[in-house]
Simulated scan of single mutants.
Amino acid sequence: MSETIAASDQYVQSLARGLSVIRAFDAENVQMTLSDVSRRTGLTRATARRFLLTLVELGYVRTDGRNFELTALVLQLGYSYLSGQTLPQLAQPLLEDLSREIHESTSASILDGNEIVYVARIHTRRLMTVGIAVGTRFPAYATSMGRVLLAGLPPERLDAYLAEVELRPLTERTLTTEAALRAEVQRVREQGWAVVDQELERGLRSVAVPIFSPAGEVAAALNTSMQATLGLDGPTLEEAAASVLPHLQEASRKITQALAARS
């Protein structure tokens, strides 16, 4: 028997389908009807209903009879992973110091597939319509941390990412062509930091820098977000980035050193 056949024999389709139902919920789909879940997962309504009701029984999903949403219990699914990582533990106190210095929210994230995942977060004020917490995911192409992480990929992995990602316009400013995104990633790689102006959400600017592993590879990204001030009185994008960039770079240096010492 070949290894491929043996591997498929081990595949538990019901588990895969149940996980697909959980993953169907995201920042843009916090609450969904049975029809919504069926459409997003590709499951029939009857199959989606069985999985949703099973998750309700297990406590991972709640329902009012029509709409379904995840409960906080799903956080336990990722707790074992996060608790085994040194990065969130080392970054959290340094993010706190950084937030006090610049008076803005700060975050650290890693790349997971085509998205960034927040692994540490200090919240000072809410700038986005969607709340951000550890575990929140966003498309990498439209975020400052995502572009830093993409800039750290080897060429073949970046090519694979660009070949499969769907570049959807999240705002009128979002880069939605492969050529434009590739050029921006190259610019980020050369200058060592990224700034995104209202591409993920209108009114939101963010600046990010890389965090390096002991081997010198980009292991994570660190960022801060700020309000995009409209009118003539507010700072320009360049001025806003320049005001926080040295603080971000210093915090990144400290986290990188801590990772090296821990290893």
Results as ranks from 00 to 15, higher is better:
2 S>D: 14
2 S>P: 12
3 E>L: 12
3 E>H: 05
4 T>F: 07
5 I>N: 06
6 A>S: 12
6 A>L: 13
7 A>Y: 02
7 A>Q: 11
7 A>L: 12
8 S>Y: 08
10 Q>P: 00
12 V>E: 04
13 Q>R: 13
13 Q>G: 04
14 S>T: 01
15 L>T: 08
16 A>W: 09
23 R>P: 00
29 N>C: 02
32 M>R: 05
32 M>G: 02
35 S>M: 04
37 V>I: 10
42 G>L: 07
44 T>Y: 00
44 T>S: 14
44 T>P: 00
45 R>K: 15
46 A>M: 09
48 A>Y: 04
49 R>Q: 14
54 T>F: 08
55 L>R: 01
55 L>F: 12
56 V>G: 05
58 L>Y: 14
59 G>F: 12
60 Y>L: 14
65 G>F: 07
66 R>T: 11
67 N>L: 15
69 E>N: 13
70 L>F: 09
70 L>V: 11
72 A>P: 00
72 A>R: 13
72 A>H: 12
74 V>D: 06
75 L>S: 14
76 Q>K: 12
80 S>W: 05
80 S>T: 13
83 S>A: 12
85 Q>N: 07
86 T>K: 13
86 T>M: 11
89 Q>E: 08
91 A>S: 14
93 P>Y: 10
94 L>R: 13
100 R>A: 12
104 E>G: 00
106 T>M: 08
108 A>Q: 03
110 I>M: 12
113 G>D: 09
113 G>N: 10
117 V>H: 06
117 V>R: 15
120 A>G: 15
121 R>G: 01
122 I>C: 10
125 R>S: 13
127 L>C: 11
128 M>A: 15
131 G>E: 14
132 I>M: 13
136 T>Y: 09
136 T>C: 08
140 A>K: 00
141 Y>T: 00
141 Y>N: 01
142 A>W: 04
142 A>T: 14
144 S>T: 05
147 R>V: 00
151 A>C: 07
155 P>Y: 02
155 P>V: 02
157 R>M: 09
160 A>F: 04
167 L>C: 06
168 R>E: 13
171 T>W: 07
172 E>R: 15
177 T>S: 15
180 A>N: 05
184 E>P: 00
185 V>I: 15
189 R>I: 05
193 W>Q: 01
194 A>V: 08
199 E>W: 08
201 E>N: 13
202 R>D: 15
205 R>P: 00
205 R>Y: 05
207 V>P: 01
209 V>L: 08
215 A>S: 15
218 V>P: 01
220 A>P: 07
226 M>I: 10
227 Q>D: 11
229 T>F: 10
233 D>M: 15
241 A>P: 01
241 A>L: 05
243 S>N: 13
244 V>F: 05
248 L>T: 06
248 L>Q: 07
251 A>F: 06
251 A>G: 04
252 S>P: 04
253 R>W: 09
254 K>G: 03
254 K>N: 12
263 S>W: 13
